[in-house]
Design a protein around this nucleic acid. Structure first.
Lengths: 203, 203
DNA sequence: TTATTTCTGTATCACTCACTACAAAATCCT
DNA sequence: AGGATTTTGTAGTGAGTGATACAGAAATAA
């Protein structure tokens, strides 16, 4: 009769309830990590921005590194490129790559935290463990892109996925350096033309 | 009779002489900054690697930041790309860019400190002042490349220099991710083809 | 109510960071 | 030789780092 067992996410645990929304805090932390990077963002910065104290922070997220890992995965889910649409079955490879790079141009320039959170974090972090986390996520993305490209044109999968990853890194860097969306789109189109030209001449 | 006044670099200053070679130390510091980045390389790491104590370090270099600035400039002089040769007067723009990117492919993959020291440092540093120094050097390089491209093809200088900077960032990132020289050269060629194709179709 | 559990705030912890005070040592100038 | 000057090694500075001990507060369970 009653619907008491439907709500499984907040199962009315015992003890004093948490005074903040963990999901909201994670979203805010992810944005901060994206904008300022792992090293430049201290736990003190985070607790201050979230309006909580260190013990609450560590009880909810474990450690700075664990929160960072969660933030990276959240970024992929909420702001990651739509690889499936860009490289949909039946799409010519050069066209799919052009679409994916255009998605990146649009995504990387928007907001104050520009560039790709994963690509920018994959190198240059003082904390070795944090860099490793980012590199893991980037490798996962690379692998997935390679797989999707492989289903379109298996013969050029290695070459094309390497080129895509390089182009994404270039676009991300340019976005980070302040390049506006419109110009970024042009850059993406030129880069895509390079692969197209290569595939045509090699055919 | 004697040649005492010829040697002007070591003018026999008063006081206790320095026990280490400043140039050698600078070279070693530059390599370390390149390989590990500003944040990850502590002054303690530096003094240990150079075999000196902190007071000698600060007497010789002023501060970690000043040494970093010197290291960046040394990198440009000793390992910077030969822009003048790549974009020599009379060179077709697309060919010059292809040459410059190939130089980068060769330079970025060599050694254990891979990627461009300036590009990699221009973003992602926890220390804001160090990032600013790197960004200054990158802007200087961008400006010089823009000027040289402008003398080859003034109409496409903005577009081409933006594209070159983006491609260099992509090549640097790929090198940092372990891409070998041969593959990096192919990437450079494909990227250069993009601009060539763009310039031809726009003409 | 009473016990149990969980979270919250205060006040730290040990550690690393870039950097320096101080006096002894080593050179040049007179 | 003796004074002036600069570097050297020892030892430590204050500030900031990520992470915690502890006790009180706020909820559920009995």
């Amino acid at each position: 009769m009653s619907d008491t067992e439907i709500n499984t996410q907040t199962t009315a645990r015992r003890g004093r309830p948490r005074a903040f929304d963990r999901e909201v805090a994670l979203a805010k932390a992810q944005a901060l990590f994206h904008a300022r990077g792992y090293d430049a963002l201290s736990v003190a910065d985070l607790t201050h921005a979230l309006g909580i104290n260190p013990p609450s922070f560590y009880a909810a997220f474990g450690s700075k590194l664990e929160l960072y890992d969660e933030a990276l995965r959240r970024y992929e889910k909420t702001e990651g490129l739509d690889v499936d649409t860009a490289l949909a079955p039946g799409t010519p490879l050069s066209e799919g790559v052009a679409r994916l790079l255009r998605y990146a141009a649009d995504a990387y320039a928007s907001g104050e935290a520009c560039g790709c959170m994963v690509i920018e974090a994959a190198r240059g972090t003082a904390d070795a463990a944090a860099g490793e986390k980012a590199r893991e996520r980037m490798e996962a993305s690379r692998s997935y892109i390679h797989q999707r490209i492989s289903s379109l044109d298996a013969g050029h999968a290695d070459l094309a996925s390497d080129y895509v990853m390089m182009s994404l890194a270039g676009l991300s860097a340019s976005a980070r350096n302040g390049m506006p969306t419109a110009r970024l789109r042009i850059m993406a189109a030129i880069a895509a033309d390079g692969l197209k030209s290569q595939l045509e001449h090699a055919a």
